[in-house]
Design a protein around this nucleic acid. Structure first.
Lengths: 129, 129
DNA sequence: TTCCCTGCAAACTGTTTGCATCGCT
DNA sequence: AGCGATGCAAACAGTTTGCAGGGAA
């Protein structure tokens, strides 16, 4: 484990990510952090988002549309992706341990974790149509 | 729905995908098809893989490592991704309807489907270490 | 003073697309 | 003949990386 040195940029990125439930892309994070640090570069944002993910202070969520999303909510949970408004929404569907257990029973190998991505139309979009 | 015209390349791609359970990347498909069609281009492979996915004769599976995988097994099922050998393995874990149903109960919106990707070490890799 | 971190830009990977031509139907 | 499909190459999006200089310890 490499030694970490404090950086205001990383702190700002972490703070922003913690203040939000929108699962932003790296580029969205970049644009918001830029308001406070006009000279920050996209590379730095990527480096820090990946670093935060590595040390377990954020998670990286792969989307079918390409373009990973980031989330400061690190306890295991699921996500819903609205095909209409492209929002990614946290799911409170707490069967993770049970699912890992059930899956392990019928699988030759060691399951460490799993991700689940639900797909459909969110409530807001449903009511608008 | 656009009209489809027969093409030997598409047929070969579909046949190859059906003959295999390895969830190949577009590039892997490309390299195999090239043995039969030395002049085929990667663009054509991508176009046909996406086309097959669109008409429901294949599925596209997003991986956390970037680089989608393709699968001719189109009935809904889950996958396991081995962090050791990078293989993607079909899971016979048949709780899809139940999970969709349970999730729908506690979610404001219309869930159409979901994908689940398990992560860990496959049996082969476990025994080798 | 050390060495991690930054900004910048170039490089890289996976994928899509415009275009002229080919080949089903 | 008509129009979808192909091969090729250029373009694209998202992400990573090499480097020289800056800042925390």
């Amino acid at each position: 484990m490499a030694s970490l040195k404090y950086s205001r940029q990383r702190e700002a990125i972490k703070d922003y990510l913690s203040s939000v439930t929108t699962h932003p892309t790296a580029d969205t994070v970049y644009m918001h952090i830029k308001e406070e640090f006009p000279n920050i570069s996209l590379g730095t944002v990527y480096r820090n988002l990946n670093l935060l993910a590595d040390i377990g202070e954020a998670i990286k969520i792969t989307t079918p549309d390409g373009g990973d999303r980031f989330d400061a909510r690190t306890n295991p949970h699921y996500h819903f992706y609205c095909k209409c408004c492209k929002r990614m929404i946290d799911m409170d569907f707490d069967h993770m341990d049970k699912i890992n257990h059930l899956a392990s029973e019928s699988f030759d190998g060691q399951i460490e974790s799993h991700t689940m991505l639900f797909y459909g139309i969110c409530g807001d979009c449903l009511r608008k149509s």
